[in-house]
């Protein structure tokens, strides 16, 4: 297991190198001066530019430029945003937790609803239940997310008035910024209105998280269904039947665990598309996350922000990949064993 972890870590390091190389090359590919694209110093005078150029080794070979850029990234200096002239690192530190919160809640909703429904569909294969579930998952998958988001706001916020339509927390509550994750911050704070604030934050996250979760949930339904069908055909399920176990025991003890392993394997892949959906949803629900910020940066041609925002987002997605890989290995004894050639 340790060896497996070390191997994943080394893979992570090399992917990071490639990603930073890609981000670095973006500065050269975007229009304008690469140095200004990298640092975001649009208002710098010629003397400051010369000093910056020395810091970034602009006169030297590309490789040295890259290493000096790496040095800056590792020390936490991501440059300034071209639009607001604020350090990007601090902006990301403020915005990224909100996105992580939204996407993780959405992923949890998608898995908690999607996977059991898929299992149910597989157990009732070729019967009415299966057909109904498949039809709904197909419809759910085909609905465009921005339309669904607007519809959800229209119905649940405006018509019924059950849930708030925008933002992360009502303005009447004041929560100290500790970790950046709002729900954790609320739980850490010792205000008198702690639980009211918690309820309010939960009410705010339900609608956007459900909208983000719909498409991944339908994918999980179909994934769970097909893997469960495969598992139910295998010889060890047949052998378990011959052993005299009841259907319930077979499903809970053998089928679910083996099917979950296959599903967990795909969670990392689905997470990337879930992040894209989360970005669109953030715009609709004015969620103060990285997605809205990144889309704004694209409109404003804030190259520094785009480049570093992409870098941080991809690192986050890659970390999620590694976590799902480790979970997969933890669940599956076969994956732990195979230490060579995989």
């Amino acid at each position: 297991m340790l060896l497996f972890f070390v191997r994943r870590l080394s893979l992570f390091l090399f992917t990071m190198l490639l990603l930073t190389w890609f981000a670095f090359s973006l500065a050269h590919l975007f229009p304008g001066d690469p140095l200004i694209n990298l640092t975001g110093q649009v208002n710098a005078n010629p003397e400051q530019l010369i000093a910056l150029g020395q810091q970034y080794h602009t006169e030297d070979h590309m490789i040295f430029q890259y290493f000096s850029y790496l040095e800056h990234i590792i020390s936490g200096d991501l440059g300034l945003s071209m639009a607001s002239q604020l350090p990007i690192a601090s902006e990301l530190a403020n915005l990224l937790p909100a996105t992580i919160e939204l996407s993780i809640v959405a992923l949890a909703i998608a898995m908690i609803t999607g996977v059991p429904i898929g299992f149910v569909a597989a157990i009732y294969h070729k019967r009415k239940v299966d057909d109904v579930i498949l039809t709904f998952s197909m419809i759910g998958y085909s609905i465009p997310i921005f339309w669904l988001g607007l519809l959800a706001v229209l119905i649940f916020s405006i018509e019924l008035g059950w849930l708030p339509s925008a933002g992360q927390l009502s303005l009447i509550y004041e929560i100290d910024h500790v970790t950046g994750f709002l729900i954790i911050d609320i739980l850490l704070s010792d205000n008198t209105y702690k639980w009211q604030a918690f309820a309010d934050a939960t009410a705010h996250i339900i609608l956007p998280a459900c909208v983000v979760a719909l498409a991944p949930a339908t994918i999980f339904i179909r994934l769970a269904r097909t893997t469960m069908l495969e598992i139910l055909e295998t010889s060890y399920i047949k052998a378990a039947k011959a052993k005299g176990l009841s259907f319930r025991q077979i499903i809970y003890r053998h089928a679910v665990r083996n099917a979950m392993i296959q599903v967990v394997r795909h969670v990392g892949l689905q997470f990337a598309s879930l992040m894209t959906l989360a970005m669109v949803t953030e715009v609709i629900f004015s969620w103060p996350g990285i997605g809205r910020w990144l889309i704004d940066s694209i409109y404003q041609r804030d190259y520094t922000a785009i480049q570093n925002g992409l870098l941080v987002l991809s690192i986050f997605i890659f970390i999620v990949h590694i976590i799902t890989d480790l979970t997969y290995a933890g669940l599956n004894p076969l994956a732990r064993e195979r230490s060579y050639g995989s």
Partner: peptide, 8 residues
């Protein structure tokens, strides 16, 4: 081998 649950 195929008749024994691989994860248990």
């Amino acid at each position: 081998i195929a008749c024994l649950d691989p994860t248990t």
